[in-house]
Design a binder for these strands. Structure first.
Length: 438
RNA sequence: UCCGGCUUAGCUCAGUCGGUAGAGCAAGUGGCUGUUAACCACUGGGUCGCUGGUUCGAGUCCAGCAGCCGGAGCCA
């Protein structure tokens, strides 16, 4: 073996003899020439083995390699004769590490969704999945960078929670030493406590929703980042969300352009994501959607006071090349903790950010109710158990303060950035309505 | 929970009017010195999702069930 290098650094070793360690991705060849595509986790390199460059046994062994055989391959780095900027390895040695016991199930041809999901642990090795998950990593890193660089303190929210806050139908219940507990649906209430202690906080972790949803936008387990800021009003929340999304998109474009190209993503659509984003009042949004609805639409008529469906969100965002923010929804369709609009009691100071290209809601947030009496009335109005909110009410009892924040779903963000048809490919091991494994 | 669609070889699919099972890929064998979802030839491979019904005869028609996919509601 020569010096082992990752395939991502091959351009720095032209004319040197190096070793790659990885797995056979694909093989083509003839009696006297083998083309071995070797995948090492960092990329894929074509290794060319001529019959006259190696001994007979090595050449024969290379011709029998099965897909996903693990191996060390040694050779001289050269420029690809036909492709500019692409390097390949003129193989001089091959060492097989692990021979597959059975044919690899994922072939270079097409497969169906169910088959691929059953083999998700192997599917991760494929080129496109590799690209998607590297974009996901870049999003996660950008999220942390943004908040860390803007004086936010990371406050981890608990995953076990004691009480049902937004109705038990969408909660996963579990046993907790003799009492029932639920997996968290949101860290927000805890972030409000954090904001009172640290001013600017965020949490980032898995979130669980037992929704009977099987659409392209839903997972049972997904990751959400939730910032919360003391003394921030609705306009401040929108400023923050806009600045944050621009930063994440820019960082992904900066660091993962090659992966977006593998996914054949239209990069100019992402480059258009610049401040300011349109801010549309709910009432105006309803009018725009009503106007944009095709006459043969099968959706129920949209009236002032109702929430938007997926189709409505797509119609609304269609006219824009960047995300739009819809603010001041009817309080009746929003959570109990949202502050009422002082200018119109029917409205809540909430905001949803809708991604372009039909990806729908990627951010939901707003200003929180800070008046104890109003909050108590809202808890009662929503039929929630007051005893569950003892500590939460304390935040209003001891130095109440205006504050707000939002939650962003990582998977929907990644699906949009990669322009994927479904969020299931944006998380390594998706948990869906009918899938708990692998 | 509701609405619609799908289920045939390891995988992706075709299968006409109801007449007894097909292709490509994968696997195996052989050929080919620049291939790149390589190509060419040959070989093996089937409980047509399950149960029941109609019929001389069902992959095909009917009913029930199951699984999957998409959508609605709900949400990030």
């Amino acid at each position: 073996m020569a010096q082992v290098i990752p395939s991502s650094e091959i351009s720095k070793h032209v004319d040197e003899e190096v070793t790659l360690q990885g797995w056979l991705y694909n093989r083509r060849g003839s009696k006297k020439l083998h083309f071995l595509e070797v995948r090492d986790g960092f990329g894929i390199i074509q290794c060319v083995m001529s019959k006259n460059a190696v001994d007979e046994a090595t050449f024969a062994a290379a011709g029998e390699l099965a897909q996903e055989t693990s191996l060390h391959i040694t050779g001289t780095v050269t420029a690809h004769p036909k492709k500019e900027g692409v390097y390949e390895l003129k193989a001089t040695g091959l060492e097989v590490v692990g021979v597959p016991t059975d044919p690899y199930p994922i072939t270079p041809k097409e497969h169906g969704v169910e088959f691929l999901m059953d083999h998700r642990h192997l599917w991760l090795r494929s080129k496109r999945q590799h690209a998607v998950l590297r974009v996901r990593h870049a999003v996660v890193r950008a999220v942390r960078e943004y908040f860390d660089e803007h004086d936010f303190t990371l406050i981890d929210a608990p995953i076990f929670t004691p009480n049902a806050v937004e109705g038990t139908s969408t909660l996963f219940e579990t046993e907790y030493h003799g009492q029932s507990a639920y997996l968290t649906q949101s860290g927000q209430l805890y972030m409000e406590a954090g904001a009172a202690a640290f001013g600017k906080v965020y949490c980032f972790g898995p979130t669980f929703r037992a929704e009977k949803s099987k659409t392209r936008r839903h997972l049972q387990e997904f990751w959400m980042v939730e910032p919360e800021v003391a003394f921030m009003d609705l306009d401040g929340v929108m400023d923050l969300a806009e600045d944050f999304v621009c930063y994440v998109v820019a960082r992904v474009l900066e660091t993962r352009r090659a992966d977006l190209e593998i996914l054949e993503r239209d990069i100019s659509a992402l480059e258009a994501v610049q401040k300011p984003f349109p801010r549309i009042h709910y009432t105006d949004a309803v009018a725009q959607i009503q106007k944009a609805r095709p006459e043969d639409s099968e959706a129920p008529p949209l009236e002032w006071g109702s929430d938007f469906g997926g189709e409505d969100e797509t119609l609304l965002s269609q006219g824009y090349d960047r995300p739009v923010m819809v603010h001041r929804y009817p309080a009746a369709v929003k959570a109990f903790y949202m502050k009422r609009d002082p200018g119109d009691d029917r409205l809540a100071l909430g905001v949803d950010m809708l991604a372009p290209e039909g990806y729908g809601e990627i951010i939901g947030g707003g200003q929180r109710e800070s008046d104890l009496e109003v909050l108590d009335a809202a808890i009662a109005h929503h039929g929630l158990p007051p005893e569950a909110f003892g500590w939460y009410r304390d935040l209003r009892r001891f130095g109440t303060f205006p504050h707000g924040g939002f939650g962003m779903g990582i998977e929907r963000m990644v699906a949009w950035l990669c322009k994927l048809p479904h969020v299931r490919e944006t998380i390594p091991f998706p948990r869906m309505l009918n899938r708990l494994s692998p």
